[in-house]
Simulated assay, not measured.
Amino acid sequence: MATTVNNAFAEFMKEKVNLDQEKTKIARSSRDNLIDNIKGFSGDSDFFVVYTDKILRFGSFERGTKIRPIDDIDLMLCLSGEGTRTYIQSGEVFYINGSDADSKNGLMTDNTNYLNSTKVINRFISKLSDLQDYSKAEMHKNHEAATLQLKSYTWNFDIVPCFYTDTGFYLIPDGSGNWKKTDPRIDNERITDINQKHNGKLLELIRLAKYWNNRKVTIRIGSYLLECMILQKYENKEASENWWIDLEFRDLLNYLSSAILSDVDDPKGIQGNLNSFCWDDRCKISDALTNAYNKAVEASNMELNDKNQKGAITKWGEVLGSDFPEYTGE
Protein backbone atom coordinates (compact mmCIF):
# COMPACT_ATOMS: atom_id res chain seq x y z
CA MET A 1 0.00 0.00 0.00
CA ALA A 2 1.53 3.31 -1.11
CA THR A 3 0.51 5.42 1.88
CA THR A 4 4.01 6.72 2.56
CA VAL A 5 6.97 7.61 0.39
CA ASN A 6 8.94 4.77 1.93
CA ASN A 7 6.22 2.25 1.09
CA ALA A 8 5.88 3.65 -2.43
CA PHE A 9 9.60 3.26 -3.11
CA ALA A 10 9.66 -0.25 -1.64
CA GLU A 11 6.78 -1.30 -3.90
CA PHE A 12 8.29 0.42 -6.93
CA MET A 13 11.69 -1.20 -6.50
CA LYS A 14 10.19 -4.64 -5.99
CA GLU A 15 7.63 -4.56 -8.80
CA LYS A 16 9.20 -2.34 -11.46
CA VAL A 17 12.97 -2.02 -11.03
CA ASN A 18 14.65 -4.99 -9.34
CA LEU A 19 14.92 -8.28 -11.20
CA ASP A 20 12.45 -10.98 -10.28
CA GLN A 21 14.32 -13.43 -8.04
CA GLU A 22 12.94 -16.58 -9.63
CA LYS A 23 13.76 -15.38 -13.15
CA THR A 24 17.23 -14.45 -11.96
CA LYS A 25 17.79 -17.99 -10.67
CA ILE A 26 16.63 -19.41 -14.00
CA ALA A 27 18.88 -17.01 -15.92
CA ARG A 28 21.92 -17.99 -13.86
CA SER A 29 21.15 -21.65 -14.39
CA SER A 30 20.79 -21.16 -18.14
CA ARG A 31 24.10 -19.29 -18.23
CA ASP A 32 25.88 -22.10 -16.41
CA ASN A 33 24.29 -24.62 -18.77
CA LEU A 34 25.57 -22.66 -21.74
CA ILE A 35 29.09 -22.66 -20.29
CA ASP A 36 28.89 -26.44 -19.95
CA ASN A 37 27.73 -26.72 -23.56
CA ILE A 38 30.64 -24.63 -24.83
CA LYS A 39 33.07 -26.66 -22.74
CA GLY A 40 31.81 -29.61 -24.75
CA PHE A 41 33.42 -28.06 -27.85
CA SER A 42 36.78 -27.81 -26.10
CA GLY A 43 39.52 -29.53 -28.07
CA ASP A 44 37.42 -30.09 -31.21
CA SER A 45 39.64 -29.96 -34.28
CA ASP A 46 37.71 -26.92 -35.59
CA PHE A 47 37.60 -25.11 -32.24
CA PHE A 48 39.84 -24.19 -29.33
CA VAL A 49 40.76 -25.58 -25.95
CA VAL A 50 38.67 -23.75 -23.34
CA TYR A 51 40.58 -22.21 -20.42
CA THR A 52 37.97 -23.13 -17.83
CA ASP A 53 39.55 -21.40 -14.84
CA LYS A 54 39.54 -18.01 -16.56
CA ILE A 55 35.95 -17.99 -17.89
CA LEU A 56 34.56 -14.67 -16.67
CA ARG A 57 31.00 -13.71 -15.82
CA PHE A 58 30.76 -9.95 -16.16
CA GLY A 59 28.40 -7.10 -17.03
CA SER A 60 25.48 -5.62 -15.11
CA PHE A 61 23.79 -8.99 -14.55
CA GLU A 62 26.87 -10.29 -12.76
CA ARG A 63 27.46 -7.03 -10.86
CA GLY A 64 23.87 -6.95 -9.62
CA THR A 65 23.01 -3.64 -11.30
CA LYS A 66 20.73 -4.87 -14.09
CA ILE A 67 17.13 -3.72 -14.03
CA ARG A 68 14.00 -5.31 -15.47
CA PRO A 69 13.68 -6.98 -17.85
CA ILE A 70 16.58 -9.42 -18.17
CA ASP A 71 17.48 -8.79 -21.80
CA ASP A 72 21.11 -9.84 -22.10
CA ILE A 73 23.69 -11.69 -20.06
CA ASP A 74 27.40 -11.19 -20.68
CA LEU A 75 30.02 -13.91 -20.66
CA MET A 76 33.72 -13.92 -21.49
CA LEU A 77 34.64 -17.38 -22.74
CA CYS A 78 38.37 -17.81 -22.26
CA LEU A 79 40.42 -19.80 -24.75
CA SER A 80 43.76 -21.38 -24.01
CA GLY A 81 46.89 -20.05 -25.66
CA GLU A 82 48.05 -23.69 -25.59
CA GLY A 83 51.64 -22.54 -25.19
CA THR A 84 51.89 -21.58 -28.86
CA ARG A 85 49.94 -18.32 -29.24
CA THR A 86 51.77 -15.10 -28.40
CA TYR A 87 50.83 -11.45 -28.78
CA ILE A 88 52.40 -8.16 -29.75
CA GLN A 89 51.12 -4.67 -29.00
CA SER A 90 51.03 -1.59 -31.21
CA GLY A 91 49.52 1.35 -29.34
CA GLU A 92 46.13 0.21 -28.08
CA VAL A 93 45.88 -2.60 -30.66
CA PHE A 94 47.00 -6.14 -29.90
CA TYR A 95 47.85 -8.80 -32.46
CA ILE A 96 47.81 -12.49 -31.55
CA ASN A 97 50.17 -14.77 -33.40
CA GLY A 98 48.05 -17.76 -34.35
CA SER A 99 48.95 -21.42 -34.21
CA ASP A 100 49.21 -23.95 -37.03
CA ALA A 101 45.70 -25.15 -36.10
CA ASP A 102 44.37 -21.59 -36.42
CA SER A 103 45.86 -21.39 -39.92
CA LYS A 104 44.35 -24.73 -40.95
CA ASN A 105 40.95 -23.59 -39.64
CA GLY A 106 41.07 -20.38 -41.69
CA LEU A 107 41.13 -18.08 -38.67
CA MET A 108 44.02 -15.82 -39.69
CA THR A 109 43.78 -12.30 -41.05
CA ASP A 110 44.49 -12.63 -44.78
CA ASN A 111 48.18 -12.76 -45.67
CA THR A 112 49.29 -12.56 -42.02
CA ASN A 113 50.05 -14.87 -39.12
CA TYR A 114 47.63 -12.97 -36.88
CA LEU A 115 44.55 -14.60 -35.38
CA ASN A 116 41.53 -12.65 -36.63
CA SER A 117 39.06 -11.91 -33.83
CA THR A 118 36.10 -11.52 -36.19
CA LYS A 119 36.77 -14.96 -37.66
CA VAL A 120 37.04 -16.36 -34.13
CA ILE A 121 33.61 -14.94 -33.30
CA ASN A 122 32.20 -16.42 -36.49
CA ARG A 123 33.64 -19.79 -35.51
CA PHE A 124 31.83 -19.44 -32.18
CA ILE A 125 28.62 -18.65 -34.05
CA SER A 126 29.05 -21.72 -36.23
CA LYS A 127 29.53 -23.98 -33.21
CA LEU A 128 26.75 -22.36 -31.18
CA SER A 129 24.29 -22.77 -34.04
CA ASP A 130 24.47 -26.53 -33.52
CA LEU A 131 23.14 -26.35 -29.95
CA GLN A 132 19.53 -27.50 -29.59
CA ASP A 133 18.29 -25.16 -26.84
CA TYR A 134 19.02 -21.99 -28.77
CA SER A 135 17.19 -20.44 -31.70
CA LYS A 136 19.78 -18.18 -33.31
CA ALA A 137 23.45 -17.25 -33.09
CA GLU A 138 24.74 -14.10 -34.79
CA MET A 139 27.39 -11.40 -34.69
CA HIS A 140 26.75 -8.67 -32.11
CA LYS A 141 26.31 -5.23 -33.64
CA ASN A 142 29.64 -4.06 -32.19
CA HIS A 143 31.48 -7.01 -33.81
CA GLU A 144 33.03 -7.83 -30.44
CA ALA A 145 30.82 -10.74 -29.39
CA ALA A 146 28.52 -13.52 -30.53
CA THR A 147 24.86 -13.08 -29.55
CA LEU A 148 22.92 -16.23 -28.76
CA GLN A 149 19.12 -16.27 -28.55
CA LEU A 150 17.32 -18.87 -26.48
CA LYS A 151 14.19 -20.75 -27.52
CA SER A 152 12.55 -20.82 -24.11
CA TYR A 153 13.47 -17.48 -22.50
CA THR A 154 13.46 -13.80 -23.43
CA TRP A 155 17.10 -13.01 -22.70
CA ASN A 156 20.11 -13.35 -24.99
CA PHE A 157 23.70 -14.19 -24.21
CA ASP A 158 26.51 -11.96 -25.44
CA ILE A 159 29.54 -14.23 -25.58
CA VAL A 160 32.95 -12.60 -25.87
CA PRO A 161 35.84 -14.90 -26.85
CA CYS A 162 39.01 -13.95 -25.03
CA PHE A 163 42.51 -14.95 -24.10
CA TYR A 164 44.15 -14.48 -20.70
CA THR A 165 47.71 -13.19 -20.87
CA ASP A 166 50.70 -14.12 -18.73
CA THR A 167 50.82 -10.48 -17.63
CA GLY A 168 47.40 -10.71 -16.00
CA PHE A 169 44.84 -9.15 -18.32
CA TYR A 170 42.40 -10.32 -20.99
CA LEU A 171 42.45 -9.77 -24.75
CA ILE A 172 39.04 -9.47 -26.43
CA PRO A 173 37.91 -8.63 -29.98
CA ASP A 174 38.20 -4.95 -30.87
CA GLY A 175 35.50 -4.95 -33.56
CA SER A 176 38.04 -4.63 -36.37
CA GLY A 177 39.54 -8.10 -36.47
CA ASN A 178 42.28 -7.46 -33.93
CA TRP A 179 42.27 -7.52 -30.13
CA LYS A 180 42.16 -5.09 -27.22
CA LYS A 181 43.00 -5.16 -23.54
CA THR A 182 40.42 -5.37 -20.73
CA ASP A 183 39.92 -6.73 -17.23
CA PRO A 184 36.30 -6.71 -15.94
CA ARG A 185 37.47 -8.33 -12.72
CA ILE A 186 38.48 -4.83 -11.61
CA ASP A 187 34.91 -3.60 -12.09
CA ASN A 188 33.45 -6.64 -10.33
CA GLU A 189 35.73 -6.23 -7.31
CA ARG A 190 35.34 -2.45 -7.15
CA ILE A 191 31.57 -2.43 -7.08
CA THR A 192 31.51 -5.24 -4.52
CA ASP A 193 33.87 -3.34 -2.22
CA ILE A 194 32.00 -0.03 -2.47
CA ASN A 195 28.62 -1.70 -2.06
CA GLN A 196 29.85 -3.47 1.08
CA LYS A 197 31.17 -0.17 2.41
CA HIS A 198 27.61 1.16 2.18
CA ASN A 199 26.09 -1.87 3.86
CA GLY A 200 24.91 -3.55 0.67
CA LYS A 201 22.50 -0.76 -0.28
CA LEU A 202 24.32 0.86 -3.18
CA LEU A 203 23.33 -1.65 -5.88
CA GLU A 204 19.65 -0.83 -5.49
CA LEU A 205 20.39 2.89 -5.81
CA ILE A 206 22.34 2.23 -9.01
CA ARG A 207 19.38 0.28 -10.37
CA LEU A 208 17.03 3.17 -9.55
CA ALA A 209 19.32 5.61 -11.36
CA LYS A 210 19.35 3.29 -14.36
CA TYR A 211 15.57 3.19 -14.37
CA TRP A 212 15.42 6.98 -14.50
CA ASN A 213 18.07 7.02 -17.21
CA ASN A 214 16.06 4.58 -19.34
CA ARG A 215 12.96 6.80 -19.24
CA LYS A 216 14.50 8.77 -22.12
CA VAL A 217 13.69 12.17 -20.68
CA THR A 218 17.02 13.19 -22.18
CA ILE A 219 19.96 11.63 -24.04
CA ARG A 220 20.56 8.25 -22.46
CA ILE A 221 23.80 7.81 -20.53
CA GLY A 222 25.60 4.54 -21.24
CA SER A 223 25.01 2.04 -18.45
CA TYR A 224 28.70 1.54 -17.67
CA LEU A 225 29.44 5.28 -17.67
CA LEU A 226 26.52 5.87 -15.30
CA GLU A 227 27.75 3.18 -12.93
CA CYS A 228 31.27 4.61 -12.93
CA MET A 229 30.03 8.10 -12.06
CA ILE A 230 27.93 6.76 -9.19
CA LEU A 231 30.83 4.70 -7.88
CA GLN A 232 33.04 7.78 -7.98
CA LYS A 233 30.66 9.50 -5.59
CA TYR A 234 30.24 6.64 -3.16
CA GLU A 235 33.85 5.52 -3.21
CA ASN A 236 34.72 8.81 -1.50
CA LYS A 237 31.59 9.08 0.68
CA GLU A 238 31.38 7.80 4.23
CA ALA A 239 28.73 5.19 4.91
CA SER A 240 25.47 6.66 6.23
CA GLU A 241 23.96 5.35 9.44
CA ASN A 242 20.53 6.26 8.06
CA TRP A 243 19.98 5.35 4.42
CA TRP A 244 16.76 6.34 2.70
CA ILE A 245 16.76 5.51 -0.99
CA ASP A 246 14.59 8.50 -1.95
CA LEU A 247 16.95 10.97 -0.26
CA GLU A 248 20.04 9.23 -1.62
CA PHE A 249 18.55 9.32 -5.11
CA ARG A 250 17.67 13.00 -4.74
CA ASP A 251 21.25 13.88 -3.83
CA LEU A 252 22.63 11.56 -6.50
CA LEU A 253 20.69 13.43 -9.19
CA ASN A 254 22.38 16.64 -8.08
CA TYR A 255 25.81 15.00 -8.11
CA LEU A 256 25.30 13.50 -11.56
CA SER A 257 24.18 16.84 -13.00
CA SER A 258 27.72 18.10 -12.32
CA ALA A 259 29.62 14.85 -12.93
CA ILE A 260 28.28 14.45 -16.47
CA LEU A 261 29.94 17.74 -17.43
CA SER A 262 33.41 16.36 -16.72
CA ASP A 263 35.53 13.58 -18.16
CA VAL A 264 35.23 10.23 -16.39
CA ASP A 265 38.34 8.07 -16.18
CA ASP A 266 38.11 4.34 -16.76
CA PRO A 267 38.66 2.77 -13.32
CA LYS A 268 40.54 -0.09 -15.04
CA GLY A 269 43.07 2.41 -16.40
CA ILE A 270 42.60 1.04 -19.92
CA GLN A 271 40.04 3.04 -21.91
CA GLY A 272 40.91 6.55 -20.75
CA ASN A 273 37.97 8.98 -20.67
CA LEU A 274 34.63 7.16 -20.74
CA ASN A 275 32.51 10.29 -21.26
CA SER A 276 32.42 10.68 -25.03
CA PHE A 277 29.49 13.12 -25.09
CA CYS A 278 30.10 16.47 -26.76
CA TRP A 279 29.69 19.58 -24.62
CA ASP A 280 26.19 20.37 -25.88
CA ASP A 281 24.97 16.86 -25.08
CA ARG A 282 26.61 16.98 -21.66
CA CYS A 283 24.71 20.18 -20.95
CA LYS A 284 21.40 18.72 -22.12
CA ILE A 285 21.82 15.72 -19.84
CA SER A 286 22.90 17.96 -16.96
CA ASP A 287 19.82 20.14 -17.39
CA ALA A 288 17.53 17.08 -17.31
CA LEU A 289 19.24 15.81 -14.15
CA THR A 290 18.94 19.24 -12.53
CA ASN A 291 15.23 19.37 -13.40
CA ALA A 292 14.71 15.92 -11.87
CA TYR A 293 16.71 16.97 -8.79
CA ASN A 294 14.56 20.09 -8.28
CA LYS A 295 11.40 17.97 -8.37
CA ALA A 296 13.00 15.50 -5.96
CA VAL A 297 13.76 18.38 -3.57
CA GLU A 298 10.10 19.42 -3.76
CA ALA A 299 9.04 15.85 -3.03
CA SER A 300 11.31 15.49 0.00
CA ASN A 301 10.22 18.88 1.35
CA MET A 302 6.58 17.81 1.08
CA GLU A 303 7.34 14.59 2.92
CA LEU A 304 9.67 15.86 5.64
CA ASN A 305 8.55 19.46 6.22
CA ASP A 306 4.90 19.52 5.19
CA LYS A 307 4.12 15.94 6.28
CA ASN A 308 2.29 15.62 2.96
CA GLN A 309 2.81 12.01 1.89
CA LYS A 310 0.28 12.21 -0.94
CA GLY A 311 1.86 15.30 -2.49
CA ALA A 312 5.36 13.81 -2.12
CA ILE A 313 4.37 10.52 -3.78
CA THR A 314 2.72 12.43 -6.64
CA LYS A 315 5.82 14.57 -7.13
CA TRP A 316 8.07 11.51 -7.17
CA GLY A 317 5.81 10.17 -9.91
CA GLU A 318 6.80 13.19 -12.00
CA VAL A 319 10.45 12.17 -11.59
CA LEU A 320 10.10 8.42 -12.10
CA GLY A 321 7.08 8.17 -14.40
CA SER A 322 3.62 6.66 -14.44
CA ASP A 323 4.75 3.29 -13.08
CA PHE A 324 5.60 4.87 -9.75
CA PRO A 325 2.80 3.95 -7.32
CA GLU A 326 -0.06 6.35 -6.72
CA TYR A 327 -1.05 7.34 -3.21
CA THR A 328 -3.57 4.83 -1.84
CA GLY A 329 -4.39 6.43 1.51
CA GLU A 330 -7.55 8.29 2.40
Rank of each mutant, 00 (worst) to 15 (best):
R185G: 14
H143L: 14
N301K: 07
N199M: 08
T218Y: 00
L107M: 05
N156M: 08
D323S: 10
S240E: 14
S42P: 06
S30P: 09
E303D: 09
S176P: 11
L274P: 03
I67F: 14
D287Q: 14
T24R: 13
P69D: 09
G329D: 03
C228F: 01
Y95N: 05
N275M: 04
T147C: 14
E326T: 11
W279K: 15
D280C: 10
S223T: 06
F249D: 08
K315N: 06
W244Y: 14
P184T: 12
A288E: 07
S126L: 13
L247Y: 08
L304K: 15
D36C: 10
Y234K: 08
R68S: 11
D72E: 13
I186A: 06
E144M: 10
T84W: 07
G64V: 11
D102C: 00
D20A: 04
N188Q: 07
R85T: 06
L253S: 05
N214R: 11
Y327F: 10
A27W: 01
E62K: 01
F324T: 02
S45I: 10
I230Q: 06
S257K: 07
N213K: 07
K237N: 09
F277M: 12
K16N: 14
I245W: 15
Q232T: 13
A27I: 06
K66L: 15
Y87Q: 00
D174G: 08
G329W: 01
T3F: 12
A146Y: 03
L115H: 01
Q149K: 10
Y170W: 14
R63V: 01
D72Q: 09
R68V: 08
G321D: 01
R185D: 14
D280Q: 12
C278A: 12
L289R: 02
F277T: 13
K268S: 13
F324V: 01
D36S: 11
T154F: 09
D110G: 13
E144I: 12
A2Q: 09
Q196R: 12
Y293C: 05
Y114I: 05
D100V: 03
T24L: 15
E138M: 10
L75C: 00
K127I: 05
D174V: 08
W243D: 05
I260Q: 07
F48R: 03
K315H: 06
N7Y: 04
N113Y: 10
F124E: 07
F277D: 15
R207M: 13
I159W: 06
